[in-house]
């Protein structure tokens, strides 16, 4: 178990050059705020959904390299996916972080670099922060969408 398991090159790359990081997202229908009460990491996530799929997303926040890099890699992995598919991918990532299996490795793309974080239990929550925000954002979107449908 070395520092390179935790701070994989790909993770440091996402940390230094984050993708999908912005404080605004044009046309976003949903915005959620998540924090890690243990260490104070904060993350905002905005989603724009079209035809039942994530057309684009933007995250912003203040957190450690693991939490910010994971959100960046997540953005790459889920943009273009249907909501249900993105949820399934989030579950695959969660299982990997808890050392409970490897599913959809190719779909996780750079997310696979976070595998080593599972060996550092106190940092697992950091890696999951963006993904948990994604699940929450999808649920919020569906809630809003559901009410809209009833109005129709």
């Amino acid at each position: 178990m070395s520092m390179d398991d935790l701070y994989h090159e790909i993770i440091l790359d996402h940390y230094k050059s984050p993708r999908h990081r912005a404080s605004e997202l044009e046309g976003a229908q949903v915005s959620v705020h998540h924090s890690n009460p243990l260490c104070g990491d904060e993350l905002d996530l905005r989603l724009r959904v079209a035809d039942g799929a994530i057309e684009d997303l933007a995250f912003d926040g203040d957190g450690c390299s693991i939490s910010m890099a994971s959100a960046s890699a997540m953005g790459q992995a889920v943009v273009g996916r249907e909501l249900g598919d993105a949820e399934d991918l989030a579950e695959a990532f969660r299982l990997m972080m808890h050392g409970e299996g490897h599913k959809r490795e190719d779909d996780l793309a750079d997310g696979i670099a976070f595998e080593g974080v599972a060996k550092f239990p106190v940092r697992v929550k950091c890696a999951l922060l963006g993904w948990m925000a994604l699940l929450d954002a999808i649920e919020s979107y569906r809630g809003g969408d559901g009410r809209g449908s009833r109005d129709d």
Binding site: M3, C39, G40, G63, C64, S65, I66, R123, C126
Partner: peptide
Amino acid sequence: LHPHDIGTIMDREGVAVRAGHHCAK
């Protein structure tokens, strides 16, 4: 650098420090 990252690397050096909001957000 974020304190969480600092704390993790310092721990590897045998130095135990606290990283976070210290229950005083």
